[in-house]
């Protein structure tokens, strides 16, 4: 497949990267059209960060090729760097310096002169709501402020392609919203964004297209709606009062939702995917009530990343990623 660099800001073909015995990238293909947001969704260790590191010239692939903003990331790395902004998992900032000093320093390393670097720093502080705190050392910043400053640092040269590697991992809901708003306004201005995340909700909120990554390659892609359709959308979960009513409840819930019900005797939980959210909920409540089955709790929730993976790959993600996805849904 020839590289189409006319309409695409990011093109990756057959990227491979091996660390010891594990293949972090195993034939990774990706094409992101200019001016769009693509979400790489996958658990820890799926290869998302490795892919971003290759695409931002930090890592040489063992095989395959990639172009970002029309530049080959290996042969034209130096030129590609002028067009790429990277916001990594950890806010890569100097903790001792002030927010403004950080931005001026990075601006000068982009070879803006001192005066322009200063002007640019002030613009970005203003834009990200950090003008008042620009003089404070970064170590006094909250998590959300750090991440916004990190984002500002990635935007000094107004990059045509911005990479966000798990931009909200470790942030509280408020910090997460701050970052999401900032990213939303960038996208509106026409920047191409590649976002990696473990959170379905985040990919859903920000990305027009989602690529699900597992074992170093893209295993499914589509709009959030398409993917959710493929995995059965939302789920209804019922906690029963008595464990011996599980078989009866499974039969009822299966009939009402038309989905494949699953149960967990330890927690007396019966769940199934649903299509019509509220309608399914009322139907389930009514049918259980008619059968005389008492439910202690009924919830509608989004599928966790673990469940997405189970359906797409047939295997579960590692425990920790699954737990975190569940926490995310709860939040």
């Amino acid at each position: 497949m020839p590289v189409d660099s006319t309409g695409h800001a990011i093109v990756a073909e057959g990227l491979r990267k091996r660390y010891g015995g594990t293949e972090a990238l195993a034939g990774f293909d990706l094409a992101v059209p200019k001016g769009t947001v693509c979400g790489l969704l996958g658990p820890n260790g799926a290869g998302k960060t490795t892919a971003v590191r290759v695409l931002t010239t930090l890592l040489r692939p063992d095989a395959g090729r990639a172009e970002v903003a029309g530049f080959d990331v290996v042969r034209q790395a130096a030129r590609a760097r002028y067009h790429v902004g990277l916001v990594g998992q950890h806010a890569a900032l100097d903790e001792v310096l002030s927010g403004r000093q950080n931005l001026v320093m990075f601006g000068r390393l982009y070879h803006l002169g001192l005066a322009r670097a200063r002007r640019r720093a002030d613009e970005l502080l203003e834009r990200f709501g950090l003008a008042d705190t620009g003089a404070k050392p970064v170590k006094q910043y909250s998590g959300g402020m750090r991440r916004r400053l990190d984002l500002a640092a990635g935007l000094i040269l107004a990059p045509s392609v911005l990479f966000l590697d798990e931009p909200t991992t470790g942030l509280d809901p408020r910090g997460r919203n701050e970052v999401w708003e900032a990213v939303g306004s960038l996208v509106a201005a026409g920047t191409t964004v590649l976002l990696t995340t473990q959170y379905l909700e985040e990919a859903d909120r920000l990305a027009a297209k989602i690529c699900v990554v597992d074992s170093g390659r893209v295993i499914a892609e589509g709009t959030p709606g398409e993917l959710k359709g493929a995995i059965g959308g939302d789920r209804v979960d019922v906690v029963l009062r008595a464990a011996d009513e599980i078989p009866a409840a499974m039969a009822i819930i299966g009939r009402v939702t038309g989905g494949e019900p699953e149960s967990d005797p330890d927690t007396r939980r019966v769940g199934a995917p649903v299509r019509e959210r509220v309608a399914a909920l009322t139907e389930v409540v009514r049918a259980l009530d008619e059968a005389g089955i008492v439910a202690e709790d009924i919830t509608l929730r989004r599928p966790s990343l673990d469940e997405v993976f189970l359906r797409l790959t047939g295997h579960r993600t590692d425990e920790r990623a699954g737990e975190r996805a569940a926490e995310e849904v709860a939040a």
């Binding site: 931002t56 010239t57 930090l58 130096a78 030129r79 760097r81 002028y82 790429v84 990277l86 990594g88 998992q89 950890h90 806010a91 890569a92 900032l93 100097d94 903790e95 990075f106 390393l109 982009y110 070879h111 640092a153």
Partner: peptide, 17 residues
Amino acid sequence: TRGVTDRFRSLPMASSA
């Protein structure tokens, strides 16, 4: 550790610097 070195490496600056 903090990723500052990686940020420098992602910038178009001289790597010797």
